[in-house]
């Protein structure tokens, strides 16, 4: 249960919430995967779930651990501090879905909000994270920090999408860092910053006039010798091999729907089990 006195020191911003949820999967009998820990906290609500659409790698298999992250409250709002710790145990497969987009809102007094997601994917494990968009509402002030540590033979598929404000509004201040290491060495590290406190993101080098930016990152140890070739498949989207056994599909678009379509096109350029 959420207990504000435990997380939230008295001097924190008024009304701010802090939450720390924990999720783990482990290998069960006959190669199946099961949920180990499933601890929701505050606004971070974790629930066992079923396949809800195409699934790279897991291919809607019934014997993988499947969890949906839902929002228990609005937000995060300014001042909130959320953490989600995930362990994908050796040999297991965890599919993390999200129930809806995350709307990041300003809080009272302009304090910043922060969300830290830390994922460890152990030997032979597979992590599939089908995140829904994060919407940086007008005047929000949010820092999003995702760290993923992969074992050298772990597999991963994740999608991230960010929207610059709700329809017709200017984006708030937003910074999102995604850092992926493999066997302790950096594989992918990119931060996206936008909003009135940042400069240059509206120029042609970064996002231009686009209101949506996203990527898909896929890591597969089988690509160690031959990673898929670079493919700029749209004026505003490209599939690019990383310096290790992974690819990044990056896209910018005027809106959420066209961004999702561009990313799906990129994923479909990869052979099965990625393409769906």
């Amino acid at each position: 249960m959420y207990d504000s006195s435990r997380h939230n020191p008295a001097h924190g911003p008024i009304g701010a919430m802090s939450a720390r949820a924990v999720l783990s999967s482990e290998l069960g009998p006959k190669g199946s995967s099961r949920i180990g820990t499933l601890r929701s906290d505050g606004s971070l609500v974790l629930r066992k779930s079923n396949p809800k659409g195409p699934e790279p790698l897991a291919r809607r298999r019934p014997d993988v651990a499947r969890v949906a992250l839902a929002a228990g409250t609005a937000g995060p709002l300014g001042g909130d501090d959320y953490a989600l710790d995930i362990l994908v145990g050796a040999g297991s497969t965890l599919v993390l879905q999200e129930v809806s987009a995350m709307l990041v809102l300003p809080g009272l007094g302009g304090a910043g909000s922060h969300m830290a997601i830390s994922v460890t994917v152990e030997a032979g494990a597979t992590f599939v994270w089908l995140a829904e968009p994060i919407i940086a509402a007008h005047r929000c002030n949010h820092r999003h920090d995702v760290r993923i540590a992969l074992a050298p033979d772990a597999r991963m598929f994740l999608r991230e999408e960010m929207l610059l404000g709700r329809h017709g509004e200017a984006a708030g201040d937003f910074a999102s860092r995604l850092r992926i290491t493999r066997g302790g060495a950096a594989l992918y590290d990119q931060q996206i910053d936008f909003g009135p406190a940042s400069d240059g993101w509206g120029g042609a080098a970064v996002l231009g006039q686009n209101r949506a930016v996203g990527s898909v990152i896929a890591v597969d140890p089988d690509w160690t010798d031959a990673v898929p070739a670079a493919l700029p498949y749209d004026e505003t989207a490209a599939l690019t091999p990383l310096a290790g056994p992974g690819v990044a599909i990056g896209a910018v678009a005027p809106d959420s729907l066209s961004l999702r379509r561009l990313l799906i096109r990129g994923v479909n350029e990869l052979a099965p089990p990625w393409a769906t």
Binding site: R177, Q190, Q191, I192, L207, P232, T236, A237
Partner: peptide, 20 residues
Amino acid sequence: GDLPSPGAPLSDIAAEHHRR
């Protein structure tokens, strides 16, 4: 590992088009 990492998606995409 803590050095800054600001991305520039359009630069990456445009560079791949340019090469071709």
